[in-house]
Amino acid sequence: MRVETVATTEGPVLTAEGPATRRRPRGSFGGTRLVSIVAVVLLFLFIFGPLLWLLVWAFVGVWHYPALLPQKWSLSWWRQVFNYPSLARSVELSFLFAPTVTALSAVICLPAAYAFARFRIPGRRALMIILFSVNAFPKIGLYITIATLFYALNLMGTFLGVVLIQLLGTIVFMTWIPTAAFAAVPRSLEEAARDVGASRLRTFFTVTLPLAAPGIFVAMVLAFLASLDEAQGTFLVGIPNYVTMPVQMYSLVSDYPPEAAAVFAVLLSVPSVVLMLLVRKHVMGGSLARGFQV
């Protein structure tokens, strides 16, 4: 959902990049160094430009065309959003679903990940790629098919139904990344623990799990964020009983001017940004990259 917001605000940002792009030919005789600096700036603008744009929009009082910045700043839209009747409820719901989905996903996927990493499973590769197929097709088609199934099972509009639909999106990385994390723990470390007298279970909890923890942690954060941002499936299954923050944004976008949507989008980004900063070290450490080497 957030991504869609970003896409709609991309247009003006790209025109703002115009001068930077025109500077490029001049850089070519200045040396490759200048070219790389320009590339970095462009990339930076491409990633942060829309976010910056969003942030400006969230504080707009008056802003008329050719001005580069708003003529008048204001917090009025924040007040509007905070006074929005179902906002608190949607925040509450989002932070109820995200931990539930993450925990359930961990319970289902971590044992599978351990098995993929440690036991010889026939068709291991094929099984892991099948998991990926959930993400390989347009989700909305999948959700509609599932919705018919959910109607039959009376899961539409239920808590469990929303949890299940959100779970779908987390399965892949919740399996792949921890599989790599478990596989990266040298067997000899486990053998050494057995050798000094630890049982299989004790070995798992004292040696394997702590060493795989960074990878598992990254996967759990991603699952948490995926659940927090999931809109399509939640909208389809949860409406009208379970309106989470991203679903709420749909109605905000249609009912209010862009300023309100911007405020809400900023709010929605806060948990993601905080969590990503928290796990930055582990993501940089390659746990994420390792997860995608099946």
Binding site: P186, S188, A192, T206, L211
Partner: peptide, 8 residues
């Protein structure tokens, strides 16, 4: 063990 297998 050959690689010592110390718990890091």
């Amino acid at each position: 063990f050959q690689n010592y297998a110390l718990w890091p």
